[in-house]
Simulated scan of single mutants.
Amino acid sequence: MTSYRPRAVFILPEYDAATGSHFSYIYALLGDAASALDLLVIAERARGAIPEAAYRIRAQRFAFGPLRLLELFVLLLAARISGVRHAYVHYSIYGGLAAWLVFGCTGGRAYYWNCGMPWLYRRNRFAEAAFRFVLRHAILVTGTPGLAVTYARIYGLRPDRIRVLPNGIDVDLFGAAARDSDIRQNFGIAANAPVVFFAHRLSRRKGADLLPDIAARILARMPRAMVLIAGDGPEREAIRADMERRGIASGARLLGSVPQRDIAAYFGAADAFLMPSEEEGFPHVLLEAMAARTPYVATDVGGVREITPPALTPYLAPSGNSERIAEALIDLLERSANERRAIGEIEAAWVRRYDRVIVRDQFIALFTK
């Protein structure tokens, strides 16, 4: 006899089975949750072939905005008529509007995930109005209690209409992959040379414009150090030119995009991880650093302080201050290997609360309680 599974629709802005981004964690979460939920995943855009999965995937066909919105509305309406009670939208504003209209207005539930600092960046007038409408009429899901309070204050939301759901990671799998790293050998980096690693989109939002100055400050104090920069984005060429102008290109390497399946090895090779973002919500990269037992320096923005072990909060720096960020990194790198290992052990214990299995159960509880 098959046990009952609550039915839900999950709307993704994009589906790409070969993604190099943290969307791979969402796919894993959905696969884990499919044992307890009957899931239909609607992808607004899809790249490549859609593989078989534990859940059904439907890729939208239309690219033109109004037609895509109409198509999404029809898909959601069909699901609602068939008895589905829950819709969960990952960031998409138009997905949030359609989910509220079909589910929120007919006795179902429309959840809307948003986790960041959207109040820092203004959209055009229509998009901003639509975003605020979705926040006020759907059930907001965000990453930390502190972010929930901030969203409620800035957007005038009722606290009882907000849920907290952390991001998750397979702690054991990522940690094992990090420990099996051959990156130093591949790049010819000496075993005792300090290595700093950055992995994020090369954009100003992620503090990428600060990387040349941070790297220059580290290399001025520690000439044998190596700064490895993984990622791509609009700041890439400006970063390259700035590093060449400063004469540090041999000590700071642009790696380009690194596939998500390979990223753990870079964390494993690093003595410290760097996240200089001006805006964050609940960054997966810090979960990865902790799972890899790699101490990190990050900017004190969004939910970063809430997910950071107390032992590492002295290494949270103000956003935009490359001098403070570099000094914190140098302090970490000058600590003994035993001291850094002790920090890594603290991280490994702390990140357990965000293990994939725990987050899966919290996600399922949204639809079953």
Score class of each variant (00 low, 15 high):
A216K: 13
I218D: 12
I218G: 09
I218P: 09
A220L: 11
A220W: 06
P223W: 11
P223V: 08
P223G: 07
P223A: 05
P223M: 11
R224F: 05
R224E: 11
A225I: 01
M226Q: 15
M226E: 03
M226K: 15
V227S: 13
L228E: 02
L228C: 12
L228Q: 09
L228M: 14
L228I: 08
I229L: 13
I229C: 12
I229D: 06
I229S: 10
I229F: 05
A230G: 14
G231E: 00
G233Y: 05
G233V: 01
P234V: 09
P234G: 11
E235T: 06
E235M: 10
E235A: 15
R236M: 11
E237V: 09
E237W: 03
E237L: 14
A238V: 10
I239C: 07
I239K: 06
R240V: 02
A241G: 04
A241P: 08
A241C: 13
A241S: 15
D242E: 15
D242R: 15
M243R: 08
E244I: 14
E244P: 09
R245I: 00
R246L: 13
R246Q: 14
G247C: 02
G247K: 09
I248P: 06
A249C: 09
G251C: 06
A252S: 12
A252W: 04
A252T: 06
R253F: 03
L254H: 11
L254Q: 03
L254V: 05
L255C: 07
G256Y: 03
G256P: 11
G256S: 10
S257T: 15
S257W: 12
V258A: 06
P259N: 07
Q260A: 12
R261D: 09
D262Q: 15
D262R: 15
A264F: 03
A264K: 11
Y266C: 01
F267I: 03
G268Y: 00
A269D: 02
A269C: 11
A270H: 01
D271G: 10
A272I: 08
A272S: 13
A272W: 07
A272C: 13
A272T: 00
F273E: 00
M275Y: 06
M275R: 12
M275P: 12
P276V: 00
S277D: 00
S277T: 10
S277R: 04
S277K: 08
S277N: 08
S277E: 06
S277P: 09
E278I: 14
E278D: 12
E279K: 15
E279I: 14
E279D: 10
E280C: 05
E280Q: 08
G281W: 01
G281Y: 06
G281Q: 00
G281V: 03
G281C: 08
F282Y: 13
F282E: 02
P283D: 00
H284D: 00
V285W: 01
V285S: 12
V285E: 03
L286T: 01
L286I: 07
L286K: 07
L286R: 12
L286W: 02
E288M: 10
M290K: 01
M290V: 01
M290A: 10
M290T: 04
M290E: 07
A291S: 14
A291Q: 09
A291T: 04
A292D: 03
R293N: 02
R293L: 00
T294L: 09
P295G: 04
P295L: 01
Y296S: 02
Y296V: 01
V297M: 08
V297I: 08
V297Q: 05
V297D: 02
V297C: 13
